[in-house]
Design a protein around this nucleic acid. Sequence first.
DNA 1: TAATGTAAAATAATCGATTAATGTCAAGCC
DNA 2: GGCTTGACATTAATCGATTATTTTACATTA
Lengths: 222, 222
Amino acid sequence: MILDTHIDPAKLTRATRVSNEIRDAIIAGKMRPGAKVNLDQLRDEYGVSLSPIREAISRLVADRLVEFEDKKGFRIVPLCTANLLEITRLRADFEALALKHAIAIGTLEWESKIPAAIHHMNNSTGTRQAAAHDLFHASLVRGCAMPMLRDLCLMLGNLHKRYANILNYDGAGRDMAGEHAAIAEAALARDAELGPTLLARHIERTGNDLSALFEKHAKDLK
Amino acid sequence: MILDTHIDPAKLTRATRVSNEIRDAIIAGKMRPGAKVNLDQLRDEYGVSLSPIREAISRLVADRLVEFEDKKGFRIVPLCTANLLEITRLRADFEALALKHAIAIGTLEWESKIPAAIHHMNNSTGTRQAAAHDLFHASLVRGCAMPMLRDLCLMLGNLHKRYANILNYDGAGRDMAGEHAAIAEAALARDAELGPTLLARHIERTGNDLSALFEKHAKDLK
DNA sequence: TAATGTAAAATAATCGATTAATGTCAAGCC
DNA sequence: GGCTTGACATTAATCGATTATTTTACATTA
C-alpha cells in the first residue's frame, strides 16, 4: 500500500464497517440511484441492528451519496446532468487548488509518492488499476496542508467514480498514461501553473466524457 | 424573512431539532472547543433518548464542528491557526466562485434579494444584524446553480462565525457597510471580475482580523 | 371517472436496557 | 521514584421492542 493509513480492524465499530461497505457498494453502482433505502433490509443483509445501520447510512449523506428527509428516510442520490456538471466543475477546481498548494509547500515525502503511484497505475489492471488511479489523485493532493480540501477532493472523486462505474466508462480513446505522466512531471517540477492546469483539464475531460455517456444512456437509467 | 425555506416544525424529528440547537450552541461558542461531548449529559439537557442525540451530534461531523473517533466518541473541534487559515482560504475561494456563477446565470429573483438583504443589514443591530449578515452572504451565493457549493459556503461561513463569536470579533475598524455595498453593486452590475474579487477580499479581511485576534488570545483559550 | 377518505401495512423515530470497550487510579513491583 | 497490573467507574456501541408517521390499497362518493 502506498497511501493507506493503517487502521486496526478491531477498532472499527459495526457502524463504521457497514458504512464503508455500503459506500463502496453505492460507488460501485450496486445500489440503484434514486432508490429508497430500506433499513430493515440492510439490517438483515449486514446482520446488525438498526442503530449501526442507521448511523452508517446517515454518514453517507455527508458524502453526497445518500439523501435524507425527516420522517421520509434515506434514498440513494439520483444521477442527473446538473449534478454531474457540478461534480466535474468542483472537482477540477478543488484538485487544482489543492495541487497548487501542494506544489508550494509539499515535502520530499509528498513528492516521492507520486512516481510510486504512477508506477502502480502502469503496472496493474482492472480493479487494482482503478484503485491505483484513486491513489494517484490522492497522492497529488496529499501534499497540501488543507485537510478539509483534501476530504472534499476525495469525496468528489468518489462521486465521479460512481458515474464512471454505472456508465461503464473506461477512458477509452484517451492517452491516460500520458496525461498522468504530464501531470506528475509538472508537479515534481514544482510548476504551480502547469501542474494544476493539466490536472484540471484531465478531470474536465473525464467529466465531459461522462456527460456524453450519460446523455446517451440517460433514458436507460430512468 | 428574506431567504428562509419555511419548514413545518411538526415535520422535524427530535434528532433534527436537537442537531440544529447544538449546532447553534457550538457556533455561538457555548461549547468549549476541544471538549469531549458527553452524550448522557446532552440526553438530560435536551430531554430525549440517546438515539436522537447521537444522530444529532453525528450530523455535525459533516459541518466540521464535531470530530468523531471510533470507540472514543465525539469532541468539539478545537480552534487552531491552521484550521482558521484553511477556512478563510476556502471560504474566500468558494464564495467567489459561487458568486461568479451567480453573476453568470442568476435570475432577476436572485438579484432582487441582494438589495433587500443589504437593507436588512443596515437597519438592524445585534443578533438580528448578525443574522442579516449571514443572509447577505447567502443571498449572493444563492443565484448559483451548484447546491453542493452553496452548502459548502454556508458551512464555511458558520465556521468563521464560530471563531468570530468566541473571539468577540465585531468588525471594528472596518467600513462593513461600504464593503457590502461595493460587493452588491458589482454583483448587480454583473461584473464577473470585480464582484468575486471584492467578495474574496471581504472574506480575507475577516479572516485576517480573526487570525490576529486568535494569535493574541490563543493562550487564554488553551 | 376522478377525487376523497380510510383502514391496514410498511417504515421511521425513539426508547430503555444490555453489552463492550475505554479510561482511571491505587496497590504492588522493580 | 517510576512503571506495570487489575479492579472499578465511565462512556460508547449495540440491541430488541415500542411508538409515531407515512404510504399503500381499496372502497366510497360526488
